[in-house]
Computed example of a mutant assay.
Amino acid sequence: MSVIDIELAMKHLLAEPEDKDLVQSQLDGAEMAAVAYLNRAFFVDQAALDSARASVPAARNQARVAYDTSMVLAAAIEDRFQSCEAMADAQFVFSEALTAATRNARGMVINKAIEAACLLKLGHLFANREEVVTGTIATELPQSSKALLAPYRIGMGV
């Protein structure tokens, strides 16, 4: 579920009511892209942020338990190649779980700059529904969504 209200997104795009499902899907994608770029999650209000942060220790503990269990099972596999592959898979899943928990731990309440960046990305997704555009010249605007997100970015992100 999006942090940004779907009605605001619809107004931003001047979209028709029948486009609401498409807009919601693209809004979710725009927000996910922003979270990946920022390397942190954002939330609708302080209560949602506090709730997400409170869940971090349990999420990390659950990830550790699942990792330990997976490693024990992987070590029991007789074929060395399959055992190593199972260990690598366990490490990947563990890393992804820790990354998700860390994004919540370093989360923030959404602000107008992040909202604007997501709406810019949404506008691009809505206007350009295909990967290839023929017969036009596309130019990225100097005040793009990345410029709006950059001050809130932690680490390298995506």
Rank of each mutant, 00 (worst) to 15 (best):
A90R: 07
A116L: 11
F94R: 14
A117M: 10
Y67N: 11
L98C: 09
L73P: 00
M71A: 06
L120I: 13
A101H: 12
C118H: 03
G123R: 10
V65W: 01
A116R: 12
A100R: 13
L122N: 09
A66H: 06
A88E: 15
N104E: 13
I110E: 02
A54Y: 01
I110V: 14
A97S: 14
F94T: 12
A88T: 15
M87E: 13
R60Y: 05
V56N: 05
A59K: 10
A113T: 08
N111H: 08
I114G: 05
S83A: 11
A63P: 08
M108V: 03
R106Q: 12
A117K: 11
A54D: 05
I114A: 03
A105C: 10
V109C: 04
T102Y: 11
R103I: 06
A105T: 11
A66P: 04
A116W: 02
L125P: 00
M87S: 14
A97Q: 13
F92M: 14
R103C: 09
A90D: 09
R53H: 01
C84E: 11
I77S: 02
A90G: 12
G123C: 09
N111Y: 07
L125G: 06
T99L: 15
I114P: 07
T69K: 06
I110D: 01
E96A: 15
R103A: 06
T69L: 03
N61K: 06
V56S: 02
V72H: 05
C84I: 09
L125C: 00
L119K: 05
C118F: 02
K121F: 12
I77P: 02
C118T: 08
A116D: 09
S55C: 01
S55M: 07
I77H: 02
L122K: 10
A113G: 05
C118K: 00
Q82C: 01
A100E: 13
I77T: 08
L98H: 10
V109R: 04
D68R: 07
C118A: 06
A90K: 06
A54I: 04
Q82S: 07
N61I: 00
A59T: 05
Q91R: 14
Q62G: 09
V72F: 03
A88R: 15
S70L: 00
A54G: 04
Q62F: 04
T102R: 14
E85L: 06
F81P: 01
A101K: 12
N61H: 02
A58Q: 05
F81M: 08
M108Y: 01
L120H: 12
R53E: 04
A97T: 13
M108A: 09
V72I: 11
P57G: 02
T69P: 00
E78F: 03
D89R: 13
S83I: 07
Q91G: 14
Q82L: 08
T69R: 05
H124W: 15
N111I: 09
A117S: 13
R106A: 08
E96V: 15
A76P: 01
A100G: 12
M71W: 01
E115A: 05
R80K: 08
E85K: 10
F92L: 15
F92D: 15
T69H: 01
D89W: 07
A90V: 10
R80W: 00
A75Q: 02
V56T: 05
A90P: 11
L122Y: 10
F92P: 09
F81E: 10
Q82F: 03
Q82P: 00
A66D: 11
S95K: 15
A76D: 07
